[in-house]
């Protein structure tokens, strides 16, 4: 028996020697692994720079033909018709109309949903509601577009007989439904990550849930709630298919939700659906509009994350 153990020990020792002899080679391999993984990580940076470079390049080419002032401050967008005019404001106004409408739907509803989940719903209700909200968040936007066109718009038609087939209201509602789960889950995270003792402190003073929510939880979690709103709005700005399908393709500056409008995203889709050759001014308009879109969403995301971090500072 003892002999047997000795044998095993010896072979183990041999193995470890073998291992040591290889160790220089392994170190080389270790840095090879590190290098290739680093390359993977670099791809994300390359992506960002490519986006900036390509949007920048095509936009500059575009500005060689269209003065930057005409683009940024022009109030008429008719790049596909003669005589062409390239004022981006109608597209921005269309986008804002959708943003305002969808925020009016999703911000109060999302916040109230998160409050319901955090304060009132029992564990069983939560187990039903949360997955359903996740499903709502995961449904592709083209499906929401179909829903807007075949359900929401006909219903709106019953309330507002004068409404156009494609209209900003239907688009706003459907985009609101799409960003609602994001708002409710971020707000829920924001409030449930507060120390439990804060809530208890409020209840121990004889406050009702309503009072605890509005004068303790919401104000304390406010930076993060605002971050949720900003991030959701940034998503609404970039939302494409639902708006293409529901809100139409009529670039105009209007505040009337019952009319057809065009957003920045739906303009890009409209051009892409036609057969535009690379290099033409129509092709470049897509990138110029895309650049505006990119800058807007990027700025909002950065601001959103700033708010989020400030929150972490305040709660130690």
């Amino acid at each position: 028996m003892f002999h047997f153990l000795k044998l095993i020990m010896r072979s183990l020792l041999k193995r470890s020697n073998l291992f040591k002899a290889n160790s220089i080679k392994k170190d080389w391999f270790d840095s090879f692994v590190k290098g290739s993984l680093g390359l993977c990580a670099l791809i994300s940076i390359i992506t960002t720079f490519s986006i900036i470079f390509i949007l920048g390049k095509e936009t500059l080419l575009f500005f060689e033909q269209v003065p930057i002032g005409d683009f940024l401050f022009g109030t008429k967008w008719e790049p596909l018709l003669e005589p062409q005019s390239f004022g981006v404001l109608p597209l921005i106004s269309g986008t804002f109309l959708i943003v305002i409408g969808s925020s009016l739907v999703a911000i109060p509803a999302g916040l109230l949903t998160s409050i319901y989940l955090g304060e009132y719903a029992g564990p069983r209700t939560k187990a039903i509601v949360k997955p359903i909200l996740e499903i709502l968040a995961g449904i592709p936007t083209v499906v929401y577009g179909y829903f807007a066109l075949t359900v929401i718009t006909p219903m709106l038609k019953m309330i507002f007989p004068s409404i156009e087939v494609f209209n900003a209201l239907s688009g706003s509602i459907v985009v609101g439904i799409m960003i609602l789960p994001m708002i409710s889950s971020l707000c829920d995270d924001a409030m449930s990550s507060l120390p439990r003792s804060l809530k208890e402190g409020g209840y121990a003073m004889g406050a009702t849930s309503f009072e605890v929510v509005w004068s303790i939880l919401v104000p304390t979690a406010l930076p993060r709630i605002v971050a949720a709103f900003i991030l959701a709005i940034s998503r609404a700005i970039g939302e494409t298919m639902a708006v293409v399908m529901a809100a139409g393709a009529t670039p105009k500056m209007t505040m009337n939700f019952l009319e057809s409008i065009q957003t920045m995203t739906s303009y890009i889709v409209q051009v892409s659906l036609g057969d535009t050759p690379a290099g033409g001014v129509e092709y470049q308009t897509c990138f110029a509009v895309g650049a505006v879109l990119f800058v807007m969403t990027l700025v909002m995301n950065i601001i959103g994350r700033k708010f989020y971090k400030r929150f972490n500072l305040e709660i130690e």
């Binding site: 990580a41 670099l42 994300s44 940076i45 992506t47 960002t48 490519s50 986006i51 390509i54 949007l55 095509e58 991030l231 940034s234 998503r235 700005i237 970039g238 939302e239 494409t240 995203t265 890009i268 889709v269 892409s272 897509c286 990138f287 895309g290 879109l293 990119f294 969403t297 990027l298 995301n301 950065i302 994350r305």
Partner: peptide, 22 residues
């Protein structure tokens, strides 16, 4: 890279389309 990934996650999908096109 960390900040960069977070930013990329927020870029609208249509912008990726433009990147792919170019």
């Amino acid at each position: 890279i960390d900040v960069n990934v977070a930013n990329l996650a927020g870029v609208p999908s249509i912008v990726y389309g433009l990147l792919g096109l170019a």
